[in-house]
Every structure is written in C-alpha cells, then in structure tokens.
C-alpha cells in the first residue's frame, strides 16, 4: 500500500506541494490530474526518492520513502516526463543493463527480459538499436526498463505525451494491464479523456494542493449533488419556467436551443417527483434527462485554473 502523509515541498517562498494525503492499494490506477505547474511532477519525484520533501512522509508497504530510499528503490518503477535512452545499444542490451543495475541475478535475466518485452509488445524489436525506435516504442521501452525488477509501485509522469493516437491507445492498454496485475500505478496527466478510460481513482491537484482524491464514481457523485437537468418541453416555455422556479430544489433555469437547463439540488427521488408533477400539471415533456458529468466537468468544477 502507498500511504502519503502530509507531503510538502517548498522552494524558498514558493510552496510547490502543500501537505498532500492519499492512500493507494494494489491494483489501483490513480490518475493524478492538474494543470501544468500544479505540482504533479514534484510530487512524483518526491515519491520516486529523487527529491527530498520539506515535510511529511510516504510509505510503500511500510517502508519510509523519505528515510529509507535504498530499501524502497527495488519496489518502485519510474518513467519521467522527459526521458532519454542510452544509445548505441540494442533493446535487449538496454534491458540487460538495467537488469544488472537492479541486481537481478544473471541466471534470471534472460527470462525476465523476454517477459517484459512480451508485455510491452517489443519482442520483434529486441535486436533493434534503441535510437532507431519510434517515439511510441521508446516510450514502451522506457516502461519496460521500469518493469524489469518487478516493482509494486509505478510512477508514470505524462506517459502518453507526444504520442500519436495509436501509441496512446497502446500505452493505455498497457497501463490497464499493469493495474490488473496488481501493481499500484500512479499516472499523471493534464489530458483528462486519456485518464478517464483506465483510472479507478483520481486526485486533482492545483497550486500544489490536492483538492480532491478518491474513486472516480464517488467524486462524480459528490459533485452531482448539484446536478443539471435538461428538459425539452413542447409548446410555450415561459409558464414552465415560472412553474419550475417555484420548486424547492430548483436553483435556476437557463434556456438554450429550445431546451431548459435546470440547476437541481435534489436526489433521484426528487427528480422523479418533479417529472411526475410536471406531467400531472399538463406540461408536455418531450425529453427529460440528467446531464452526466465526465472527468473534464469534474476537473472544471473543482479547479480554478491556477498554478503554484
């Protein structure tokens, strides 16, 4: 389990990350969302032991990331936002280098490298020189390198940035598979549709502050306490607007393209009652639906667009 407790990073006056807390369990794929400069990379670098936090701590399976970085290194894999690869060697030689650097016994290396190449779909490129690979393949090789020592926590900083659509889909599939393998995967991104597909948990960070974190469904539900109902009436709209504004749970009504958008504070029961009462009162309703929230709506509702 990854347990982050009050992690904070200051650079002089600037607070890059402000006392953040969250917990992740095996199999969790955590989308770390925030605008550029919000503190995502700083947080990831602290978790990767590359930066020392100003305050707070984090433990991975009980091992303190801040105080025992040597013990935690074998347990974590990290793929930086901007990464490079050693050139002039083949894909297999590259992975052999990292397998040796992670102290994997010689006898086990070949089998592990074969498995990792298969997982990342790079088997056909095993004898290719690193610098001849496409950007997408290099990204997968970097991920493969992060997997050779079978880490339990994977920190992926903007893993799909700069990739073409096909490579993006492939890397998403790979991340989903890693989550299914029981690894804790922390993926940062500012491209929300990218994360919506495969994250079961999200955290939204802005100005160094983790504004919200938890299961995607729970956060959406919390935000939908202030839901918007779309009602498409037949006939005149004015009497219906006046009728709606008298309802206790209605906070406002907007008209767009012949539809009414009702800001509604009630739950599902109250929604059903509202529809029944409108029909009972003789209003002709062609469509009645709740506007669903996606990750982008969640993000827009929570953040203010500020950076630290």
């Amino acid at each position: 389990m990854l347990d982050v407790k009050g992690l904070r990073k200051e650079y002089g006056e600037l607070v890059a990350v402000r006392d953040i807390y969250f917990q992740l369990h095996p199999g969790d794929v955590f989308g770390f969302i925030g605008p550029n400069g919000a503190g995502k990379t700083t947080t990831i670098k602290m978790l990767a032991t590359l930066l020392e936090p100003t305050a707070g701590t984090a433990t991975l399976n009980g091992i303190d990331i801040v105080r025992q970085p040597e013990e935690v290194l074998p347990l974590l894999g990290y793929m930086p936002d901007f990464f490079g690869l050693y050139e002039g060697i083949t894909v297999t030689e590259y992975l052999e280098f990292f397998a040796a650097a992670y102290r994997i016994p010689k006898a086990q290396r070949a089998a592990i490298i074969e498995n990792v190449l298969e997982l990342t779909d790079l088997t056909v490129k095993k004898d290719a020189y690193v610098e001849t690979l496409s950007r997408g393949m290099q990204q997968r090789l970097c991920l493969a390198k992060s997997l050779v020592h079978d880490p339990i926590l994977l920190l992926l900083d903007e893993p799909a940035s700069g990739l073409d659509p096909r490579a993006r889909i492939e890397i998403k599939e790979l991340i989903r598979e890693l989550g299914a393998m029981g690894k804790i995967v922390l993926v940062s991104s500012h491209i929300l549709p990218e994360l919506a597909d495969f994250c079961n948990k999200i955290g939204i960070i802005e100005k160094g502050e983790l504004l919200v974190w938890g299961a995607v469904d729970e956060i959406v539900q919390q935000l939908q306490a202030n839901r918007v109902l779309e009602i498409k009436p037949l006939g005149e709209t004015e009497p219906l607007i006046q009728r709606l504004e008298r309802e206790a749970h209605v906070h406002g009504v907007e008209t767009r393209n012949g539809s009414l958008y009702v800001h509604f504070a009630g739950g599902l029961e109250e929604q059903a009652d509202l529809l029944a009462s409108l029909i009972h009162d003789g209003y002709r309703i062609a469509a009645f639906r709740e506007e669903s929230l996606d990750l982008e709506d969640v993000f827009m509702q929570i953040t203010k667009g500020e950076v630290s």
Binding site: A48, T49, L50, E70, L73, P74, L76, Y78, P80, F82, F83, G84, L85, Y86, E87, F98, A101, Y102, R103, C142, K145
Partner: peptide, 14 residues
C-alpha cells in the same frame, strides 16, 4: 543530463 537519462540511472540500485 542532456539526454535525460540520469534519473533512470539514479533510481537503479547502483
């Protein structure tokens, strides 16, 4: 530093 490989190297067990 220029090739941005140092972080990967720093995180190995070397």
């Amino acid at each position: 530093y220029e090739k941005q490989t140092w972080e990967s190297l720093a995180l190995t067990r070397l």
